[in-house]
């Protein structure tokens, strides 16, 4: 059960109604709508931060799914397991990013391993990030690409804590898909 009321098309504030006009916008929007002045700015940040950007959807889903797994956010893990499959990640890769199997077996490209190292250092630890992690990432990726992924990790961590703290529910459709894919 969510900890807050999830607004719908009837109860959504005036300034949030545009997000409900196309149907159920999902629990993140439905919860954010209770503070309507934050809805637009939050989505305005999260949308581009989680979108394809310059590094592309595959790397973005590395960042989102891996961060969600490291933060233990079941809502985001479930949602982005399906998104990751939709953008072409394999079940093997998804399991590895979720921490269920070894990364080394799923990802053989040095660039992708370096990016996952950067993501892990951002999302899975506190304090300073070792120079060798940065150097390895920079050996394969441009500065702006690592900046972009850092923003994605930060936006994902916001969503992780938001969804976990408010106990946002995974939709039945997502749960059915996960079961069908053997990834529930």
């Amino acid at each position: 059960m969510p900890r807050v009321e999830l607004l719908d098309a009837e109860t959504a504030p005036l300034s949030a109604q545009q997000y409900f006009s196309g149907g159920d916008p999902g629990p993140i929007v439905a919860a954010l709508a209770t503070v309507p002045e934050l809805l637009g700015p939050a989505l305005g940040f999260v949308g581009p931060a989680l979108g394809a950007g310059a590094v592309g959807v595959r790397i973005k889903e590395f960042a989102i799914l891996r961060t969600s797994a490291l933060q233990g956010c079941s809502y985001c893990i479930n949602a982005h397991t399906t998104v990751s499959l939709d953008v072409g990640l394999t079940g093997h890769e998804v399991r590895a990013l979720r921490g269920e199997t070894a990364l080394e077996e799923a990802f053989v490209l040095a660039a992708e391993r370096a990016m996952i190292g950067w993501i892990d250092a951002l999302a899975g630890a506190t304090g300073a990030i070792p120079d060798d992690v940065w150097a390895e990432a920079r050996a394969h990726w441009a500065e702006h690409e690592l900046v972009e992924v850092a923003v994605t990790v930060g936006a994902t961590m916001f969503l992780n804590r938001f969804a976990t703290g408010l106990q946002l529910p995974t939709s039945p459709q997502v749960l059915e898909r996960l079961t069908a894919e053997g990834l529930s």
Binding site: L7, E10, T11, A12, S15, V35, E37
Partner: peptide
């Protein structure tokens, strides 16, 4: 909540501008 503009009430410019936008 259907006619809620903002949870912020002060500074008053925040809800006033939200009303103007609405």
């Amino acid at each position: 909540t259907d006619l809620l503009l903002t949870r912020t009430i002060l500074p008053l410019a925040v809800p006033a501008n939200a009303l103007l936008a609405a």
